[in-house]
Design a protein around this nucleic acid. Structure first.
Length: 552
RNA sequence: CUGCCCGUAGCUCAGCUGGAUAGAGCACCAGUUUUCUAAACUGGGGGUCACAGGUUCGAUUCCUGUCGGGCAGGCCA
C-alpha cells in the first residue's frame, strides 16, 4: 500500500516538476486517526525547490492523484500534509488477507534466502547464565526470528570460550572445593570462582554422578588429582546447566562452536602464521603484538603472551574467519557492551588477514547493563552464583514470558531496570499480561460463539466503521511494516511496543462493542476482525518467543 | 585522561534517516460491570525533550561544547 501511494505521488509530481529526487517522497503512518491511514509531507521540501507555498503545491499534487477504489479520500491538512484515507474495500481486503495467510501474515521475502548468522549469548562455561546473558539471549533470539520472518536463511550460533586462563581457574576452583578448601582459606586459588555452584560441581564429580550431555553420558572418575578430567567434567557440567536454562527460556541454537576446537584443528596457528606473513605483527617484551592501530584501534594488542599462550582475541579472529569461510556474507554478533573493545580487535585482525573481508563485517548489536530491582532495592547477589543474578532466578521467579518481554522491550543500548515486582504482577501494570490477555479474550469469544472459525471472513466492510473498529484495523494493518522495520534495524523492542498498542486498540474495541449479537452478518464481520487481530497478536508474540495463551 | 552508550512527565520507557499541538504504561484524581474474563475501558492534571551554542523555512531528532550516569581502555574475557 505504501509503495502504491508512493507511485501515485511520484506520477503526480512528475507532471509538476521536471527533475526531482523520488526519495523525497516519504509516505508515513500518521500517529493520529484524524490524519488518515497514510500521510506524506512531500509538499514541504517541494515548496522550497519550487518556491511556492506548500499548501499550493499540495493542492496541485492532490488534483493529479487519480481516483482509486482503495482510497476513500485525500485531504490536505496542517502546513501542507497530504493525508490518505483508505476505503472500506481496502479494509475488507486487508482483514481477509490476514485470515488467509494466518501465521504467515507479516512475513516477507526481503532477505531472498541469503545466509545470515546470528551469534549470541556465547557465555563462558565458567558459571550459570546471568541476567546479562538473558538479555542477550532474548534480543539475539528475537533478531533471529525477525530475520527469519523477513526471508533470511538464519543460523543461530553459540560460541564457547572453553580454553584459556578462565577455564584453568575454573578447574582449580573445583579441585579446591573437592578438597574442602573454601574461598576464605589461604590455599584457595587466587581469583578463583567462589559461587556455591562450584561446590555442586565438586560434589557431582566426587559422587561420580552421571548425566546425559548432547547424547553422551558423562561419567566422572572422581579422581580429583586429574586436573584434565576435572576440567572436562566441569565444562560439560556447566554447559549442560546453561542448556537447561536456555531451554527454559525458549531459546535454541543451530550450531555450538568451541574455542578449544579452533586450537585442536590448527585454525589458530594458521591465522597467526597468516598475520605474521602479512607483516602485521612484531615482537616486543617477549610477546607477539598485532598492529591493530593500522585498522583503527587506539593501541596495539598483545596476541601471544610471554608465557606462550594466545590472548582471547586470537581464537576470536580464527573463529570469525571460519564464519566467513562458511559463506556468511552477513554476521550479526549480539553481546554485552562491556565487551565492545573486541570489535576493533576482531575487525582489525580480519583486515590484517587480507582476505577482502568488508571493513564493517561482522555487525554488532551491543546491549547495556541491567539493574535488577526487588522491593525497590537493587538485587546483586544470587544464592548459587554469588556475585550476580542468574537467568534461572528470574525465570523461576517471574516466568519465561515476562522475563523475555522485559528483556526485549527496551532498546538494547539503553541501560535497563528490571523490576521483579512489576514483572510478577498479573494485572494491568504488566504489559505482558495485557497483551496476552487480549489474545485470550479473543479466544474465549470465538469459543463461546462456537462456529467454524475457518469460514470467517469480512463480507460487508461498511459494517466495520465505528471509531474503535477503524483504529483497530489501522493498527493491525501496520504489522507487516513494523516487522520489516524491526528486522531492518535489528530492533525487536519495536515489536514489543507495537503489540502493546495493538492490544490497547483491541481492549478498547472489546469494551465498547459487543460481538456475540443477534445480527448474524454484523456479528460475523466483527468476529472476522477480532480473529484477524488474534493472528497479529500471536504472530507478534512468537517473534519475541512469548506464548499466546487461549485462556488466562 | 581517551573511546563507546545513555540523559524525554514523579517512576519505567517509546519517538530520533529533521516536519502536524512531544507519546505510552505506572503512580495521582474522577468515572464505567443486569452485557462475550474489570488481568479491561473512559476522562483529567502533569514536560524549558540535561544545559549552551550552531546548521535549517523548521531541531527532541543533525553538528560542536559543557554537565551528569554507565561501560571499556590489563600479556582478563
Amino acid at each position: 500500500m505504501k509503495d502504491y501511494l508512493t507511485n501515485l505521488l511520484d506520477n503526480a509530481i512528475k507532471e509538476l516538476v521536471k527533475n526531482f529526487d523520488k526519495n523525497i517522497i516519504q509516505v508515513s503512518r500518521p500517529k493520529k486517526i484524524q490524519h488518515g491511514d497514510f500521510s506524506t509531507n512531500v509538499s514541504l521540501p517541494l515548496a522550497k525547490i519550487q518556491k511556492k507555498p506548500p499548501l499550493v503545491i499540495a493542492d496541485e499534487i492532490v488534483k493529479r492523484i487519480p481516483a482509486s477504489p482503495l482510497i476513500e479520500k485525500v485531504e490536505i491538512a496542517g502546513a501542507g500534509y497530504i493525508n490518505f484515507f483508505l476505503s472500506s474495500e481496502a479494509r475488507v481486503k486487508l482483514i481477509n488477507l490476514i485470515l488467509m495467510e494466518k501465521e504467515n501474515f507479516g512475513k516477507s521475502s526481503f532477505g531472498k534466502k541469503q545466509k545470515v548468522q546470528v551469534e549470541f549469548v556465547s557465555a563462558n562455561p565458567t558459571g550459570p547464565l546471568h541476567v546479562g546473558h538473558g538479555r542477550g539471549a532474548a534480543i539475539g533470539d528475537s533478531i533471529a526470528r525477525l530475520l527469519d520472518a523477513t526471508g533470511w536463511d538464519v543460523t543461530k550460533e553459540f560460541y564457547y570460550n572453553d580454553a584459556g586462563a578462565q577455564i584453568n581457574s575454573l578447574s582449580l576452583s573445583v579441585q579446591a572445593r573437592a578438597k574442602k578448601i573454601g574461598p576464605t582459606d589461604e590455599e584457595f586459588p587466587k581469583d578463583g570462582y567462589q559461587g556455591e555452584y562450584i561446590n555442586e560441581i565438586a560434589d557431582g564429580f566426587l559422587s561420580k554422578a552421571e548425566f546425559n550431555f548432547k547424547s553422551n553420558m558423562i561419567r566422572p572418575s572422581g579422581d580429583i588429582e586429574n586436573l584434565q578430567a576435572l576440567k572436562e567434567f566441569s565444562v560439560a557440567y556447566l554447559r549442560h546447566e546453561q542448556d537447561l536454562d536456555l531451554e527454559a527460556f525458549n531459546v535454541d541454537f543451530n550450531v555450538f562452536s568451541l574455542e578449544s576446537s579452533l586450537y585442536k584443528n590448527g585454525q589458530v596457528d594458521q591465522i597467526v602464521k597468516m598475520l605474521i606473513e602479512n607483516g602485521h605483527t612484531y615482537e616486543k617484551d617477549d610477546a607477539l603484538w598485532l598492529k591493530t592501530t593500522s585498522f583503527g584501534d587506539d593501541k596495539d594488542r598483545v596476541m601471544r603472551k610471554t608465557d606462550g599462550e594466545y590472548t582471547y582475541f586470537v581464537p576470536d579472529i580464527a573463529y570469525h574467519l571460519d564464519k566467513w569461510k562458511r559463506g556468511f556474507k552477513r554476521v550479526i554478533n549480539e553481546q554485552g557492551a562491556d565487551h565492545h573493545s573486541t570489535i576493533n580487535r576482531v575487525r582489525g585482525g580480519l583486515q590484517a588477514l587480507n582476505m577482502q573481508i568488508p571493513l564493517k563485517w561482522p555487525e554488532y548489536i551491543l546491549h547495556q547493563m541491567i539493574t535488577v530491582m526487588k522491593n525497590k532495592k537493587e538485587v546483586k547477589i544470587s544464592k548459587r552464583a554469588g556475585s550476580y543474578v542468574t537467568l534461572r532466578d528470574l525465570i523461576d521467579e517471574v516466568g519465561c514470558d515476562a522475563t523475555r518481554y522485559f528483556l526485549t522491550a527496551r532498546r538494547p543500548d539503553s541501560q535497563l531496570i528490571f523490576d521483579i515486582d512489576l514483572a510478577k504482577t498479573k494485572n494491568n501494570e504488566n504489559p505482558v499480561y495485557y497483551i496476552q490477555y487480549a489474545h485470550a479474550r479473543i479466544s474465549r469469544v470465538l469459543e463461546q460463539w462456537n462456529g467454524n472459525k475457518e469460514s470467517l471472513s469480512v463480507t460487508n466492510g461498511d459494517s466495520l466503521k465505528n471509531l474503535s473498529e477503524l483504529r483497530l484495523i489501522k493498527s493491525i494493518s501496520e504489522f507487516p511494516e513494523v516487522v520489516f522495520q524491526a528486522a531492518e534495524e535489528l530492533a525487536p523492542h519495536q515489536i514489543a511496543n507495537y503489540l502493546k498498542d495493538c492490544a490497547a486498540e483491541f481492549h478498547s474495541y472489546y469494551n465498547d462493542t459487543k460481538f456475540l449479537i443477534d445480527d448474524k452478518n454484523i456479528m460475523e464481520n466483527r468476529l472476522a476482525l477480532i480473529r484477524a487481530t488474534q493472528f497479529i497478536l500471536s504472530n507478534g508474540l512468537k517473534l519475541l518467543g512469548i506464548s499466546a495463551p487461549n485462556k488466562m
